[in-house]
Design a protein around this nucleic acid. Sequence first.
DNA 1: CTGCAACTTAAAGTGAACTTCAACTCAAGG
DNA 2: CCTTGAGTTGAAGTTCACTTTAAGTTGCAG
Lengths: 146, 146
Amino acid sequence: METLAIGDLAARSGVAPSALRYYEREGLIRSTRTAGNQRRYLRSELRRVAFIKIAQQVGVSLDEIREALAELPEGRTPTKADWARLSARWRGKLEERILLMQRLRDQLTGCIGCGCLSLQRCNLINPGDRLAARGTGPQMIINPPD
Amino acid sequence: METLAIGDLAARSGVAPSALRYYEREGLIRSTRTAGNQRRYLRSELRRVAFIKIAQQVGVSLDEIREALAELPEGRTPTKADWARLSARWRGKLEERILLMQRLRDQLTGCIGCGCLSLQRCNLINPGDRLAARGTGPQMIINPPD
DNA sequence: CTGCAACTTAAAGTGAACTTCAACTCAAGG
DNA sequence: CCTTGAGTTGAAGTTCACTTTAAGTTGCAG
């Protein structure tokens, strides 16, 4: 068994076949076809799916994940080093996010208790970029106290 | 200016009027009406909106936020202590989430590099509860290495 | 060769969290 | 008093990340 059928990839990755087809439509993973038009995946696609799942954990949108995956080498199967380079980038994002959460934790109680939650000067919340944004609409991000 | 019109609350909280109306329909905030049927908010609603925004940061759904807010005292304006009690609960969730992220960070590179991303035995990802879940569909959660 | 689980597609549906629209009313400064 | 910006409603639209459905095709075990 050289390649995987969609059901196999689904079983091994824990991602539903419908989601895998969706990922393919969205350009996140790739497959070849049999004579009868069924998808066959290289085993290396498993790692791609794993990466997608991990990135989603970190709060990255499929759009951003696609961009990241686009940096993997075309043509050859990515090596350990290729993956390491990519995940190093997520490490940075993760690090940022952890710091954010820690700041939030440290200031949460005090900030809700105090009057500063007029939100105008409170350094806990402020409009900004969308690091932590998931789902729809604009999201707010914690602002460093500086 | 005793109470706030919806535009004032929007300006002060950074939440769009349409979102505030939505929150009200969903039972997250409350308002009284003028003779001409316009919404007027107590200043204490500002704190409610702030709480909603912070909880969203932590990854809590509006449903869960509504449940939490339901524990605030009916009738009287919540005190500092009421808010402190509530935010203490989010602190726990936050703490959990931070630990999760740290574990993820510590194992990310190794795990992507190694063969374990067959996802079958990898202790980085596993199906489970939905602590970090935001948005639609089932989400995967990091499983403690134990 | 047959039967049946697993696959294929396009299109429509889902749920969360809003936003936009149209048509209308209110409130307050000049 | 009048104008104009702010507010009102219900209904429909939007985005993300999928899932479901319907109608049909493939691949392999027996």
